[in-house]
Write a protein that binds this DNA or RNA. Structure first.
Lengths: 303, 303
DNA sequence: ACAAATATTCCACATTATGGACCGAGCAAA
DNA sequence: TTTGCTCGGTCCATAATGTGGAATATTTGT
């Protein structure tokens, strides 16, 4: 009864075609789905941009299809093609769309105070991350004041979902179905990485859920310890994650627990602020008045 | 020879179907085009969100089509539906995509210094705007120190392209074809507004181009005067606009000229910074290494 | 200069998206 | 309560749209 949305026929159609399988819950939207996927893939290459081939390789779509879609997305301004390298990257159109929402999604400024409080209380380095496609994307970093630093991650870094204590909460607090899908998807690019096999990731998801926060001790960095918790929205879906790192000597079990509690407390505050912003969203933002005409809205100009 | 992009067959196909006409330069991408249009429409309603009917009215598309697309966009996270009002608004997915580009599109911080310089030198209020769909969207405002203020515009306000001195440069410095298309598009919602008929807008576009900056004196606010110039990218396309407003008594013709020169100078600086950001974009951003595999990129994890 | 890799385009075909008609919930007036 | 209206959501026969294999063009590397 959570979602009011009246979806009558929630058909899950398995289309097997040319060996490619896709499951769609909305019919008649294949190309939108694909376009969105392509956008995510392009985004995952950050500012460097992705070549056509890379997008094809990362999307399990036909080259011609990808190309056609990228061209269309370019013309719509959602993607832009580097004149020199011909790489495709996210375009200003996305920025413009995002800007229309004002700062309502700017979790960075929303979380700012909370993160600083954590940093000040712990003297350790604190990170904020969001999900971006199949990656966790580090949005902000508040460097700790404690002399021995553990800077392994910088702003704009993106790690596969579930890899790292900042990325894991974004994965682990998703419903099982999505967790599986994501792990399966990432398995391809994590192939050969013995530290992040599908089985290991799945196990760590379980561990994270059980202890209610993510820890990264083992793995590639034996000298540091990171603790991460998600920021959940009203539907208990992770919208972001907050993560703290310190050298391992500063992280005895009891301090871990204390840190996790602190992170959760601040996470709750962030999600409250988020939800508040969501609930006032319905009110009119600006000066404009809408008068739906025959074919388009009429905007009252003047005043 | 401006665009390197090798478009061989630039077919303009006029599809007349059920009385709806569309011109497409990329074939086989109707639904992407439509989806993008819907995104823009939804964005134009800001945080309030748009009802299904409003989107239909503003998009000249069929209700069923719009609904299906909105649902798909929702599932992809590019749009979200308010649980209460059922209005559709831009979703976090857009934020995530935008975040992947780091601050490369954040013209707001790029322009910050320039705008402050202008404000400090003139004591008047300065605005920064971008194009968002068929509107100019005010992104930032630096309030002047001169006692008599002329605050008519706030951050997040959106005015139809060409209406207002901050919005006009975004329109006027576009190629003719696009200017016409935009004016035509906006004509519907500006219907009945005698101050902004298509003919008047077109004339003002010409005037703006001739004098090389936009002025807004007449119109609805006889007490104030606004001057606006675009920020152009490497292809001379407007990416933003900078606008200054003051009470009309502070704006004799010679000062207008001086202001315009100042605005242009700062605009140039902004666009240099913009282009700089663009040119280093090709370099690798972060730790990740791409190894295109059979089906997906392989990301080197660790280090 | 040649080959290999990569990007772009073409086009016959059928899968996918279309849109007119329909349904039903919510609401206001009768 | 009933009637009538609006508006969000759904259905499904139909053909237009998007597909993708293959051909071609371009760039890159040696």
């Amino acid at each position: 009864m959570r979602y009011k949305c009246a979806v009558k026929s929630f058909k899950v159609v398995h289309i097997v075609r040319h060996g490619v399988r896709a499951n769609a819950s909305v019919n008649g939207a294949q190309s939108i789905r694909r376009a969105a996927q392509i956008l995510r893939v392009v985004a995952s290459f950050s500012g460097r941009g992705a070549t056509l081939g890379e997008v094809v390789a990362s999307s399990a779509l036909q080259k011609a299809t990808v190309h056609r879609m990228l061209r269309a997305l370019c013309e719509e301004g959602l993607v832009e093609q580097d004149e020199l390298t011909r790489n495709y990257r996210i375009g200003v159109g996305i920025f413009a769309l995002n800007a229309s929402m004002g700062d309502r999604f700017d979790i960075r400024s929303l979380a700012q105070d909370a993160l600083q409080r954590i940093r000040d209380q712990t003297e350790d380095t604190v990170y904020l991350a969001i999900r971006s496609g199949y990656d966790g994307l580090c949005l902000a970093l508040y460097e700790g004041t404690y002399p021995e630093k553990t800077l392994k991650l910088s702003v704009h870094d993106r790690w596969p979902l579930g890899v790292g204590a900042f990325s894991m909460p974004l994965l682990a607090f998703l419903p099982d179905g999505e967790v599986n899908e994501i792990i399966e998807h990432n398995a391809v690019r994590l192939a050969g990485d013995e530290l992040h096999t599908a089985a290991l990731l799945l196990k760590r998801v379980g561990d994270t859920r059980a202890r209610n926060y993510a820890v990264n001790t083992i793995e590639a960095y034996p000298t540091m310890c990171a603790i991460g918790v998600p920021v959940l929205d009203a539907q208990q879906r992770p919208i972001a994650s907050v993560c703290l790192t310190a050298i391992i000597s500063r992280m005895p079990p009891e301090r871990r627990e204390r840190i996790a509690t602190l992170l959760w407390a601040e996470s709750k505050k962030i999600s409250e602020a988020w939800q508040q912003l969501r609930s006032v969203v319905a009110q009119v933002d600006s000066w404009r008045t809408i008068q739906p005409g025959r074919k388009a809205q009429a905007t009252q100009v003047g005043v």
